[in-house]
Design a protein around this nucleic acid. Structure first.
Lengths: 255, 255
DNA sequence: GAAGCAAATTTGTATATACAAGTCAAAGCT
DNA sequence: AGCTTTGACTTGTATATACAAATTTGCTTC
């Protein structure tokens, strides 16, 4: 029996192992855009898997934007630049911090029992003890972000020990609980009375509310609500398509 | 042989028929949030399909955000409120259009001289003649997007000839001026009085304003302002990194 | 060298079958 | 009444097998 890439002891489903193997090669740069991925049959041999298991892995990677497939021709690495850039997205406060004139004011940094919503978001038992921080971030003396964050102690046991004057929650979490997955959700809301006070805005100032949830090592590590006054803040993205003429980039990279 | 829902003459793959059947029931309102979808075995019977085919359909609908599944418990209709992948290279109206119950109302479709802002955005001379359209997009009779768009004639000379009842500006532009680059910018705003009328919302309804600029063959092809009421609409992204242990996905994926 | 054709390879779709794991309700026991 | 066990049902993962459709490759003929 020849050795295969498959690892039956890890508890990771085989189709996920195949996905990880391919994504690793793309992220490492070993397989660049348009590189031809081994055929389904070749991967069957390499993993000792069934073709349907390999097919599922490749289809899901295709749906996620990593690969593109052409019937009869093969499977190729897609233009993943944008997605890789996204993987590097940091907390907005950190991007802005690098521009100088940044300060933050911690309002809260303590343990708390997880209510139903937070428990569901962090995937812990209701009333389990979790960490809760709230800070206002300032740029040039103006608040630009209200951060309300819950952290799963299992993912970052020493979280409460950090000094929020020295580093943002996210800076710490990136080291303590290297992220494996991120979910973002954006919507437009009006600020609550408390948020109006913290952000020094009026009741009719629309805000961008960014929900950010991160995973680390199979655990939900953190859940943050980041509220930004709409008049001081916007999000932007910029990317090019593989087959079009490139043009010189002018605007700074997206946050 | 009992009748089944399967249609072998349509050319539509069976797993897609299953997806269409379920999506139709959700979009029609017949199945509302938390409704329990028939089990895989029940659907096997209804479609005369194999369980793996049914499973694929349900998994994909789950990945797309329509359903949520709990092992041992069942499959349920998810919160299907409108959500759009933040970085998708498609006009939002088109994503929603694919769900059916979509209409649009053109308000404007003509030439206009480029004012300073528009000239800068399109990279044409001030007062140069450009094309200007404005439409309201509806889903289930409710306006969800106000589109204000300027088009560079050099990139799409025949733009004004299109019938906005037949296709969206973006559908046309994708063909006439295949895009090579896209820039998005998102912010939260309150609607202007005109926008309140067009979108049928109150003055305090915060809106997501998406600026979208596209390039084609080295030219700026189009600049659009897309305004969405915040209570009917949010954006989300979701992606994973290779080195994290797999976790069960609960939150819906963007469309 | 070009054209035509068949075989091989590749992805797309589908089925039957099996075992694992989670949930829930009913039955049995105390 | 409360607890435990069991069976049924449900989703999760996996395999072997098969045919369809698209593309590529190799061979033959001219």
């Amino acid at each position: 029996m020849t050795a295969t890439l498959r690892d039956d002891s890890s508890g990771v489903p085989l189709y996920e192992q195949v996905k990880d193997y391919i994504r690793d090669r793309i992220l490492s740069g070993e397989w660049t855009i348009d590189h031809r991925v081994p055929s389904e049959n070749a991967l069957v041999g390499e993993f000792g898997a069934s073709r349907m298991t390999i097919n599922r892995a490749l289809r899901e990677l295709t749906d996620e934007g990593w690969l593109r497939r052409v019937q009869g021709q093969g499977t190729f690495v897609s233009d993943t630049r944008t997605r890789i850039e996204l993987l590097e997205i940091r907390n907005i406060a950190e991007v802005i911090r690098s521009r100088g004139a940044y300060t933050s004011k911690p309002l809260l940094h303590q343990t708390a029992p997880a209510n139903a919503d937070v428990a569901e978001a962090l995937e812990v038992a209701e009333d389990a003890e979790i960490y809760h921080s709230r800070l206002v971030h300032y740029l040039d003396g103006l608040p630009f972000q209200l951060e309300d964050r819950f952290v799963n102690p299992a993912a970052a046991p020493d979280y409460l020990a950090i000094d929020l004057a020295e580093q943002t929650p996210n800076e710490y979490l990136m080291r303590a609980a290297p992220l494996s997955e991120v979910e973002h959700r954006l919507e437009a809301v009006l600020p609550t009375p408390d948020q109006q006070v913290d952000l020094e805005i009026g009741p009719e100032q629309p805000c961008l509310l960014l929900h950010r949830r991160t995973w680390s090592g199979g655990l939900v590590a953190s859940r943050a609500w980041l509220t930004h006054p709409g008049d001081r803040f916007y999000l932007s993205t910029r990317f090019s398509h593989s087959n079009g003429a490139r043009r010189d980039r002018q605007s700074p990279r997206p946050l």
